[in-house]
Design a protein around this nucleic acid. Structure first.
Length: 108
DNA sequence: CGTTTGACTGGCC
DNA sequence: TGGCCAGCCAAAC
């Protein structure tokens, strides 16, 4: 096995945190960024580089405004994400999530 | 090796 | 209430 194939070390760290997010809960990029000790944009890029096939609850990651950002040219993707969260118990309020209620708090 | 961009954030007007 | 500016770090070109 060769060493780390495509995934960078920083990305792995972020994936670890995202994988740690429980169901029916959401977390902001800045939160992960702080936990992973990286810039908030790196979190987005890490998830953007997230390979398919891997079971990473990336759909539980939203921005600090409680809304889902629109990725490059994919306006449908953000709609799909809201739908996934709603299926896990996260209710969307006018296209926004109550971060006060659903924000994941790593207190363990 | 310098420049550009990107799934962000927070503050200001 | 909502849009714009600047800061941020790393990958891609």
């Amino acid at each position: 096995m060769s060493t780390a194939q495509g995934l960078k070390r920083v990305y792995r760290k972020i994936y670890r945190i995202v994988d740690r997010v429980p169901e029916g809960t959401v977390v902001s990029y800045g939160q992960i960024a702080e936990m992973a000790d990286v810039g908030p944009r790196q979190v987005g890029q890490a998830l953007a580089a997230l390979p398919p096939g891997g079971r990473c609850p990336w759909h539980r990651v939203i921005n600090a405004r409680g809304t889902v950002p629109i990725r490059s040219g994919n306006y449908k993707a953000h709609l799909d994400q809201e739908q996934r969260l709603g299926a896990e118990g996260v209710e969307f309020r006018n296209g926004k999530v109550a971060l006060e209620v659903y924000r994941w708090q790593p207190e363990e």
